[in-house]
Each structure stands twice: as C-alpha cells, then as structure tokens.
Design a protein around this nucleic acid. Structure first.
Lengths: 235, 235
DNA sequence: CCCAACAACTTGTATATACAAGCAAGGTGT
DNA sequence: ACACCTTGCTTGTATATACAAGTTGTTGGG
C-alpha cells in the first residue's frame, strides 16, 4: 500500500474543491456513497471526511450531510505561506526588490536566535516585497549557513526565501512574535514611508529537523497591511 | 450517554497534563492499556489520543508510544482565553478597572460588524486589564443585546467579559484582525501612556450558533505586550 | 387541509477484529 | 565480540457491524 486509502480519498476531495468542481456549500456524497465509489468501508471514507472537516475544508452536520465549507475558514493567520502567492491570490501584481544579499558576522541577537556563536558568519538577505508596486513587507532574513550552504546562490526574484528554504530544509516548526513598532529612519526609507507610521513586525524563527534554519524580521507598514484569520473554536 | 466516552478520556488526559501529573515527555499508557482502564475498545481510546495529538497536546510515534508534547506547542497565539487566566498563569497579579458599562446607539462600524441596524442599542463595556498594576490591555467590547440580554448585569470584576459570554452564548467561531496603530489621546490617557507609543490592536468578532455575539477591540501598548506562538507545520 | 407518525437517509459513537509497520530488547550463532 | 534474527510491544490502517441521533420527506388519518 504505497499511500493510505483515506489519504487518496482526501486528495480526491481536495482536488474537487480546489479546481472548482465542488463549490461552496456543495453537498458531498454521503459516507456510504463514498465508500462504494472507493471500494472501502464506511469508516475509511468517514476518516477522510472527518480530517478534512477538522482542517476546515468541509462542514458536517448530523442528519443533513457533508458540505464544502463557505469562507475558506483556513486559519490563514500565521499560516506560513509565500508572500508572493498571497499577493497573487488577491489578484494583485507581485514583485520584489533585492536590497542586499551578503554574508554577515552574527550579532548577539542573531547568534542567540540561530543557536550560533557571536561573530560566526551567517547569510543575510534583505528584500522588499511589493503589492501593485507598493511596499508591503520588508523581509530581513538571517540564515544558518550550515543548514543551507547555498542560500546566497538563490535568485530571489524567482524564488522567495521561503520557497528556497522549504526546498533546502523542509521546515517542521515555527515560532512567531508579533509586535507593534515604530520603524527607525533607515528602515522607513527602505519601506518608502514617513518615519512616523507604526508597523507590524513579525519575528519568525523556523526550524527543520536539524535545528534553527533561519530568523526573519517581517516588517509591514500598518497602513498597508493587516493580519487576520478566522477559525472555529474547539470548546 | 450524557457525554461521549472518547471525550471523557480526552478530558482525563488533559487533566493529567494540566495539573502536572503527566509532565513533558511522559509516556502515556498504550492504547490497549487505556482501553482496559476505561473499559472500551482500542479504537475509542485511540480516537481520544489521535484528537489530542492533532491538537498538539500529545505526540505519537509508531512503535514507540504516545508522549506528552514538549514545549506546549499550543498555538497559544490567538487562542481565545481569559486575559485574567493568562496573567495569573504567568504568576502575576491581575486586576481590572471598569471604566464604563452602558447601552449605546450602534455606530455604523459597530452595526455592520454585529449585523445590526445603525442606531439600534448595543451593550458596551470598557475595561482596563492590569498586570502587576500596569495596564496591558484596554478592552472595548460591543455586545449584541438580543443574544446576551443580561450582559450589563455582570460584575466585571468577578467575571471577565469573555467568561461571561462563554457561559451565556458558547462561542463557536472567532475572527481576528491584528493591526499596529497609534492610539489617540483619549485612549492613551486610559492606558496611562505617552500618546506616541505604537499599539497592537486586535479586533475580534466572536460567533455563537445564533450569530455574531460581540465585537471587541483589544488594545495593547507595544512596550508591555507581545503576541507570540509556536507550532508545528503540517507540510 | 393539516398534522402527526413513520420511513429513509444522514452523520455520530462504539465495538471487535485483523494485519501492517516501526521500534527496542534480548538471545543466538558465528 | 559482533552481527543477525526473533519476539513482543507499540502505533497505523482497514473492515464489518451495530445502534444512536438529527433531518427530511412521505404517507395516512383526523
């Protein structure tokens, strides 16, 4: 059994929803119907449905049936995804300015967060992400060179750091801190801002199985960015 | 069957973890052992474990066993919990100042978010939450009077709005928007701030099965508050 | 005509069972 | 001493079955 049956069913359902064949509020085949289609027991079909339900793709209701969820209740909040995908997903134009890609000596803060020694070399990239040519995120990223030795070779106009890192060292965990800050003049200039605007700063550490991969400061001008999410409460 | 068996098992396990009887990395009884303890089938015990695992409380590994997760990978981020519990959980002193508890005419913004008409009466409360006597959150909350008719009768020094609303209309869903803002002078005064400090503002709508229950603006001075979370990535 | 009871279909819970697959420890043979 | 295999434990997948409980539509009686 290369891949579990209930996973196959999940994939099939995801496809139907993603390619639009099953739209919002579409009523899915019942558990029994699915189990016949896929030649499996009801419990197996049920498992696929249950997991997709927890994931927010489906909604179930005893006595009525299973439906495609409205309002992709994806907790897009702090989902780790590509900023480029996110922007294009809103139907807007995405592009990026590469400000700096270098080696650096680790400062104390960076060394601690990356679990390295002060002064060791780390890779550093500074990118400005634009939505319809307006800066929405300044991404300052420090990368552990031992885990991703070829980070500096990446063409960041083709692959965002997140994309590249995902391929180089699949991330298993992430840690976030969200703060409201006032940017200093230097950063304000890079973001093409009046210096007096408050910004939302997300500090993110990402982990792979081998340790801390990278530390990123994602700075968003408040006037141009919102972080939001919707999700159901378990009790 | 008042409450499902697998739920009972889940509750039991949660308790053990919460009161510290089962610490991080503690190895839980195996599925078979649990099913004997609770006089149920392995599948039922398994379900409890599986769900707690998805929730992040446990970690399982084929061939080895089930363990209490390290580093409460709870996405405490935006978990909806009591600010009083959170502060006390850090071992600090909590108290609250009740600034205002009144009826109000719904402004346009409030009416829209609560799905009411402009000018309808809504209940409003304004509370200042203090950690070790330092203001950490200003909570401005608008409540749908149809769903929670006795909101104004609550003694907010005893029960936070969240506690009270949870009892009156169990919430099923929540929606968040996080922004960085500059507070105006009026709010700055209430938070006992210099007006120039950036703040983290969380706008939260909560839903029960019957509709929008409340709309809250939670304003945190950046210097005294951080929002953070850590969680594992699904792939 | 209305409504009450029923039947049919849905999801939810629970059980018993079987085999697969990962892991660790212990023993055996070389 | 070391490699290998077996054995027993764990979780993972899958099936068949039963009944409970919520929803909807139908059917029949008043």
């Amino acid at each position: 059994m290369a891949i579990a049956k209930f996973e196959q069913i999940k994939q099939y359902i995801c496809q139907q929803v993603e390619n639009g064949a099953w739209r919002e509020n579409f009523k899915l085949p019942s558990e029994n119907a699915l189990s016949q289609e896929f030649v499996c027991s009801r419990m197996t079909a049920r498992r696929a449905l249950t997991e997709l339900c927890e994931q927010g793709l489906l909604v179930r209701s005893q006595g009525k049936g299973t439906f495609v969820a409205t309002l992709k209740s994806q907790s897009s909040l702090l989902e780790i995804k590509n900023i480029s995908d996110e922007i294009r997903g809103r139907g807007h134009h995405y592009n990026v300015e590469v400000l700096q890609v270098t080696e650096q000596q680790a400062s104390e803060e960076v060394a601690i967060t990356l679990s390295l020694e002060v002064g060791q070399t780390v890779y550093f990239s500074s990118l400005l992400h634009l939505e319809n040519n307006v800066p929405v995120q300044l991404e300052l990223r420090y990368v552990n060179p031992q885990l991703v030795p070829n980070y500096l070779d990446n063409d960041f106009t083709l692959h965002t750091p997140h994309e590249f890192l995902s391929m180089a060292a699949p991330l298993t965990e992430a840690e976030h801190i969200i703060e409201a800050t006032m940017v200093d003049e230097h950063l304000a200039q890079q973001l093409k801002l009046q210096s007096n605007e408050p910004c939302l700063e997300i500090k993110r550490r990402t982990f792979s199985s081998k340790g801390v991969v990278s530390f990123a400061r994602l700075i968003h001008p408040s006037s141009r960015f919102r972080l939001g999410g919707r999700f159901s409460v378990s009790t």
